[in-house]
């Protein structure tokens, strides 16, 4: 059985103040196996990010199904209870967004370490793993203890990536993870993605420059 089977998924935004419906995407179907990477292709505004957000349930899909094989039985991500989705976000499904939400007075290192603390790791373990991630992405160690709200876009994206990918996941949704990264960091991310794939993690990605992950793509899906 595939890890994820998406059937006829669709999303429209109803904007009540305008009395309008804005379609995001319609009739999306694909399957995804454990350890494989699916690339979503399509022009700007085709609904690529919206599709990822629907699978993470930041957006509520309004039609179709997304049958996901959890470690504990299958569930439809499109209609599962909110508390079940919240549980999966803590344990199985990660979402790498394009923007970091820094919190005042929380250091870069601790922001990255936080998902491991939530998963029950000790502070020392979590900080060590966070340092490993930040080091491999090339964030200067001198700013690990600083507050990221004033960091550059590229630096913030490194923290964002590390934070989103540090905890073990079975499914990762990657929304332009290489945007704003320098070449060394892109190479480091590529190597991390390769390692995760080998460990059986499935990934669905939107990449502005798919050549960043050339050789790692197993399936492509086009949204019109």
């Amino acid at each position: 059985m595939p890890l994820l089977q998406v059937e006829d998924l669709s999303k429209n935004f109803v904007i009540h103040a305008l009395g309008r419906t804005i379609p995001a995407f319609q009739g999306v179907s694909f399957t995804l196996e454990a350890g494989s990477l699916l690339l979503i292709r399509g022009p700007n505004g085709a609904g690529k990010s919206s599709l990822l957000r629907c699978l993470y349930r930041t957006y509520l899909p309004d039609g179709g199904r997304a049958i996901y094989a959890t470690a504990d039985g299958t569930i439809d991500l499109a209609s599962a209870a909110d508390v079940d989705i919240a549980l999966l976000r803590r344990t199985e499904i990660g979402h790498v967004t394009q923007f970091l939400r820094p919190r005042p007075r929380v250091t870069a290192l601790d922001l990255v370490a936080e998902p491991l603390l939530v998963a029950g790791h000790s502070l020392a373990e979590a900080r060590e793993a966070a340092a490993d991630w930040l080091g491999s992405l090339g964030l200067k160690a001198a700013i690990w203890q600083a507050y990221p709200s004033t960091f550059s876009g590229g630096e913030q994206q490194k923290i964002n990536l590390a934070r989103a990918m540090i905890a073990p996941r079975r499914l990762l949704l990657l929304d332009e993870p290489t945007a704003a990264l320098d070449p060394d960091a892109r190479a480091a991310l590529r190597s991390r993605i390769s390692t995760l794939k080998a460990a059986g993690v499935a990934m669905i990605g939107v990449f502005h420059h798919p050549e960043d992950i050339a050789g790692l793509i197993d399936v492509e899906f086009h949204v019109a």
């Binding site: 109803v14 009540h16 419906t21 509520l60 309004d62 959890t70 039985g73 508390v83 079940d84 549980l87």
Partner: peptide, 16 residues
């Protein structure tokens, strides 16, 4: 599709 206010019905918790 026409605009219509709706709250999509979700399933009861299964994993929790």
């Amino acid at each position: 599709p026409q605009p219509q206010p709706h709250q999509r019905r979700l399933l009861p918790p299964r994993l929790v």
